[in-house]
Design a protein around this nucleic acid. Sequence first.
RNA 1: GUGGGUGUAGUUCAGCUGGAUAGAGCGCCAGAUUGUGGCUCUGGAAGUCGUGGGUUCAAAUCCCAUCACCCACCCCA
Length: 420
Amino acid sequence: MQYQAPKGTKDVTPKESYKWQYIEDIIREICDKYGFSETRTPVIEHTELFLRSVGDTTDVVQKEMYTFLDKGDRSITLKPEGTAGVARMFMEHGLFNDAQPTKMYYLYCPVFRYDKPQAGRLREHHQFGVEVYGAPRASVDAECIALALELFERVGIHGLCVNINSIGCPQCRPIYNAALADYLRANYDGLCETCKSRFEKNPLRILDCKEQRCKDICAGAPMITDYLCEDCSAHFDELKGCLNSLDISYKVDPFIVRGLDYYTKTVFEIIANSNGYSGTVCGGGRYDCLMEQLGGPKLPGVGFGLGMERLLLTAELCGAFIPQQRQVEVYVAAADAARVAGFVLAAQLRKAGIKTEFDHVGRSFKAQFKYADKLNARIVAILGEDELRDDRVKLKNMQNGEEKSVELLSAAQSIKEILA
RNA sequence: GUGGGUGUAGUUCAGCUGGAUAGAGCGCCAGAUUGUGGCUCUGGAAGUCGUGGGUUCAAAUCCCAUCACCCACCCCA
C-alpha cells in the first residue's frame, strides 16, 4: 500500500466506530448527571500557554510537543493535554465572573505527543477529561474520581486501583523539596544516571524512578505527606473522608508525582491491572494555582484526563460487552422490474422512522437476501413482479421465517407491528 | 531517545537450512437453488512476499539500509 497513516496515529474504521459512540454516549450521560457541560477548544494553541502551565522542564514540553511556526511566525503547538486550553478558554471568556463552580468536560479531544508508540500509547490519542473551576473543597476531587469510576464500571472495566497522593502547595512544597534534596544529595552517588540529571531540574521526579537502586534510596526518603502544611493536610484528610464515605477503596501512594507542573495538593491515578494491558487509565489532580499562573484570577481547579484508546483497549481486555448500536430493521429486496418501486418504498419507510436499506449494487434477488442476512436485517420487504402488479409487498420476518403480504400503502404500519 | 522482536492476499497465518506457476482458514464475489437468507457443496477474484539496495545462475528465504507495527525502558492517557 502506497500510503499509510502517520506513525503513532490510528484510524477508526466504520466497522468499529460503534464502540466509540457507545462509550461517548455513556460519558455524555454520566457527565450530564453530575452537572458537567461540554466544552470544545482548538486543537492548536500558542506554545507559550503550555510552557507556562504544563511547565517548561517537563518531558511533555521538552521533548514531546508538536510545535511549529505558522505563516505569521507565531509559535503554535498541537495540544499535548486538555487542561491548559480549557483554562485559557475559561479566562478568555471571563467565565470566572459567573456563579462558581464551573464544571466542564471535553470529549474525543485530540491530543498530540511525539513519543515512541506502542499499544495504548499513540502520538495522536483522544481524551475525555473533566475540569472544575472555583470549587476549593476536596469533595469535588472525590466527585471527579467517583465520576471516572462510574464510567469504568458502566463500560465493564473491573479490577481498578485508585492511588492518591498530595503534593502540597507553594507554601509547603518548597520546604519538602529542600528536605528531599538534602536526602538525595547524601545518596547522590547511588542514583542512576537519569536521576542524577533529574536532581538539578526536578528532584521530585526521582521518586517516580523505576530503577531498583533508586527505589531503594527513595524508600528511605522523606515523604511529602509528612511535610504538608495545615491547609493541604486538612484538604487531603477531607478527600480521604469523602472517598471513604462513598465506599471508594483507594491507596495512598506517596510516590505519585505527576508529570505536569501545574498540580497542587491532590494528585491521583487510576490503574488498570487487567490481563494484558496494565497501566494508568486515568490521571488527574488539583491545580489551584494554574489560573493565577496564567495571569487570571486566583481560582482553584481540579480535573482529570482519560485516554479513550486506552479505555477501549482495557474494556476489550476485560471482555466488556459493547453493543452494536445500529441494526437494519428492513431490507427492501426488489426484483429487477420493481427496482424503482423498491427505491421509493425504502424512502417512505425511512420517512416513517424505520431503519431501511436498499440495494445499490445491482445484486440478484437472491444475493439481496444473502446481503440482508449479513446486515442482520430483521425484516425483508419483498417487491417482485406479482407484488408490484397488485400494489402489495410481502414482509418476511427473518428470525422466524414467517411471511405475510400487505398493501403497499400500509407497509410502514405493518412493519412497525412486526418490529414491536 | 535507548534496547529487543516482527512485517507474506481484505484479515489471521503457513512457507524461510536459497531452487521451478507463493499456499490455507476466515472474509468477499458467483453458481448449485430461474422470485426467498442462515447450513452444505462447487468455482472465482484478490499478493510490487513492507520499501530500497546488495550477494547469487537463482531471493519471500541470506546481508545492509529504511519505514511501520509489537515488547521493554523513559514518559504518560
